[in-house]
């Protein structure tokens, strides 16, 4: 059993008024302190390599995707947001996605696809905003998902560093 010992109040505290005035002086002082709210659309959120935004596909220097359509991310995705149709290609890696589609309305931004990918082909970018007028417009295909290596480089470095820990 917990016995809570109540503090015995002094006369001034029992009169409420001095304490009320003290509280009110605190709130009055706060009125003139700098505001900590961020004015979002004008003042975008700061992002860095730790920011886990939306999944994006990495393109190699020659413009082709790094993806070999192995399907590991599709299997790892807990929300079943990823759909991949693979095809054969003449390039050295022999396979590439014919269709790589992420339904951004289903995606929960968990980053499992990034962890699952063996070819460093899919990364969480720093993009945070997601808006559209139709449901269909949220089915992102390759054209919308493709990002250059430079864009995703900080995140790649970060993931590598994290993975070296174990």
């Amino acid at each position: 059993m917990v016995i809570v010992k109540r503090k015995t109040l002094t006369l001034a505290e029992r009169l409420y008024l001095p304490e009320i005035l003290r509280g009110m002086s605190i709130t009055f002082g706060k009125m003139f302190k700098p505001k900590i709210t961020r004015q979002y659309p004008e003042e975008p959120l700061p992002t860095n390599e730790v920011t886990r935004g939306q999944p994006r596909l990495r393109a190699l220097v020659d413009g082709n995707l790094a993806c070999v359509s192995c399907g590991l991310c599709e299997a790892a995705c807990p929300a079943y947001a990823i759909t991949i149709d693979g095809q054969e290609t003449d390039r050295f890696i022999e396979r590439e996605p014919e269709k790589f589609e992420i339904d951004m309305l289903r995606c929960i931004l968990c980053g499992f696809c990034e962890e699952a990918c063996p070819k460093e082909a899919i990364f969480m970018s720093t993009e945070l905003e997601l808006a559209g007028f139709t449901r269909a417009s949220f089915k992102y295909g390759i054209d919308k998902l493709k990002r250059s290596t430079e864009e995703l480089a900080p995140r790649m470095e970060y993931i590598k560093r994290i993975n070296q820990r174990w």
């Binding site: 709130t27 009055f28 706060k30 009125m31 003139f32 700098p34 505001k35 900590i36 709210t37």
Partner: peptide, 10 residues
């Protein structure tokens, strides 16, 4: 407005 200012909001 005042409630916001007292809570460090805009």
């Amino acid at each position: 407005k005042f409630s916001a200012w007292m809570q460090l909001r805009h």
